[in-house]
Write a protein that binds this DNA or RNA. Structure first.
Lengths: 137, 137
DNA sequence: CATTAAATGTTATAATATAACATATGTAAT
DNA sequence: ATTACATATGTTATATTATAACATTTAATG
């Protein structure tokens, strides 16, 4: 399609992509695809595919991440998150709070784990199940 | 039930658990639940639940891990793998080879990422998508 | 305004996973 | 051995998550 390439701003998004992203940002927690569908049924989103297609695109743009072990989707809060589909989250097992990990060296750290530099790390998915500091009290 | 507690040896497993584990060990790669079901249909495994129940138990015992982003299951090859459901794998995007990561300090390394020690890491799931050294050639 | 790539709408269906409940089996206590 | 209990099994149905296929529309560009 080659829309106006105003970098990666929200103006570039299609209607569905925009309202899905807005819902995820408002939610501030991971949502399931069918929960998104239900929430947006009054905005013309009527079929699962409409949600999944918007999510696919948003993931490709790095604006949304999938929490694989929860089949859930969350808005990216790392403003500098590249469109690379990398994910690194902590998930509190008590209160379910999900936080994206900020660590500029994470790619290198995980790359070192891959296998002493003999393979090339392309992408990672890290899910840390924790008890968060509030729930530890 | 409290079967004979001969530690965690294979003798402790029920029939279904045993044949599911054997299939996974033989496969040496991640298998999907329904692929396991299909493979074992001649051994009396006739319904998805029988597979999922065996997998649940094997995962609990640390003998099998789930690759969340592939909805697949793989036999644990870390003989010292604790029954803690931690998973750390490299997955080659070219040849699909999946290897469990051996690193005795991985729990500490990932714990450090959690959030500078203010939360408690309980469990992790790490999936590194790589190009393996054979595929790099 | 014709072309093209991407997005949408829609129906159907595939793939993954669990609920619910009846029955059976292994273990341990009596 | 009989009971009590926890776990495992068998079975049917259904819930949840995700994609296929194809016709139509929309937006950017030459």
């Amino acid at each position: 399609m080659r829309y106006k390439q105003l970098s990666d701003k929200k103006e570039n998004l299609t209607k569905h992509q925009e309202i899905v992203l807005e819902l995820l940002e408002k939610a501030n927690e991971p949502l399931k695809a069918y929960s998104i569908l239900f929430n947006l049924s009054e905005h013309g989103v009527k079929a699962p595919l409409q949600v999944y297609r918007a999510l696919d695109k948003l993931i490709e743009l790095g604006k949304v991440h999938k929490i694989e072990s929860k089949n859930s989707f969350v808005a990216c809060i790392n403003s500098n998150c590249k469109a690379n589909s990398n994910t690194a989250f902590t998930i509190c097992e008590q209160c379910d709070e999900v936080l994206e990990i900020h660590d500029k060296k994470i790619f290198k750290k995980l790359g070192d784990l891959a296998n002493q530099g003999k393979s090339k790390l392309n992408k990672y998915n890290l899910e840390l199940y924790i008890t968060c500091k509030n729930c530890l009290k």
